[in-house]
Design a protein around this nucleic acid. Sequence first.
DNA 1: GTTTTAATCAACAGTGTGTTGATAAATAAA
DNA 2: TTTATTTATCAACACACTGTTGATTAAAAC
Lengths: 211, 211
Amino acid sequence: MPTSKKPLDRRVRRTRRLLGEALLELILTQDYDSISITDITNQADLNRATFYLHFGSKEELLMATLEERFDELVQEMEAQNDDQPFWHDWTSDRLIFEHVAEHATMYRVLIGEGGVGYVAHRIISYIAEVVAAEIRAEKPTAVEEAIPIDLIAQHVAGSTYALLCWWLQEDMPYTPLEMAQMAQKMCFHGTMWALMEMQVINEPLEIYLEK
Amino acid sequence: MPTSKKPLDRRVRRTRRLLGEALLELILTQDYDSISITDITNQADLNRATFYLHFGSKEELLMATLEERFDELVQEMEAQNDDQPFWHDWTSDRLIFEHVAEHATMYRVLIGEGGVGYVAHRIISYIAEVVAAEIRAEKPTAVEEAIPIDLIAQHVAGSTYALLCWWLQEDMPYTPLEMAQMAQKMCFHGTMWALMEMQVINEPLEIYLEK
DNA sequence: GTTTTAATCAACAGTGTGTTGATAAATAAA
DNA sequence: TTTATTTATCAACACACTGTTGATTAAAAC
């Protein structure tokens, strides 16, 4: 959800912009972990104390900066008045992937070793490996998948991870079983389709039974 | 994929176990960010230099420790010989959610402010907010969803995030449009089902058209 | 019982931290 | 334009953590 703010003091805007730019520039040249507040303020040509007037940590600055970029992206997405029904419309997704491709170097750093997204990425990849192995073990071999199994596994793993985080943050409002059922339902009917091509959606579910 | 290792020197096993336990204990009592190597080795009653004989950073230790837990979980999952067809079977998912519930305090820290998973979590939540808004705007209001929209949004956001990471790591082997189409396909047929209840899967897709 | 490997200890120089109070400069409000 | 408010600067501070060193002791493997 795009953040809407009141106009701030011009110096504040300038300083925050400079800090954000400095961080993104540094990210391209050195390990994220190794970047210090001192580095950032040096790069931005600002006093180190100034940093603490605006942000409490590197991560806070990074989040604020990323969210600005995201907001721009969302505006682009909203500008697209797609007359297509939304389930035939991949414009939004395409814009996201294009955006990431545009800033690939930066995003790659974020999920790389020492990056802020590294641990989450590793966890998701771990889940994905398990899922991929499961699919390969249980899938009827004759079926040719429309989407590579590794991608399907990432899809499932990402979904699972996000649901887990949501569940934790919301203080576990459902039982594990309920969550498992909902996760399973949401994922399955997507991945099954991906495995078997679209037409089967018109057939009863039981056709999947014969392996 | 569970990691299988050769038997190590007993001292090595003991040290790594102690370090892992120390980190997990500390995580429950203080901000992850604020935990230093010194803290960890103090808690584990080991010399600080010993840490560096095994791990290069806090994150490395954390990942190794988490993966051990995951491996245990996967073993549990494999032990379940489920005769159910896997698309009616939520045992694996349930085990995951139960595992997280069991260690909720720790996992909550990991995705909280200052935690290693914080930024990824925030990014996913940002995407989820956009998705939720989109669904609410475009969904036929008469339809009563089988799964809360917020959960559906998390599902889609997590999937998108994971696919983005995979795509980056694999050096973008598909075009943005191809990725968007696959992401869209995998997600849509899951979330649509979630919105409309299962029986519609037997109907042609076009019934979704009339809003 | 011998050899190999691991943990300990103290010490090191270096770097980054977060905060301080006073000062100067830029901006907003009148 | 003038006045009042807010922001950035600077230097300095005490402190904690880092990552690595070489020599020593202890434990485990063979």
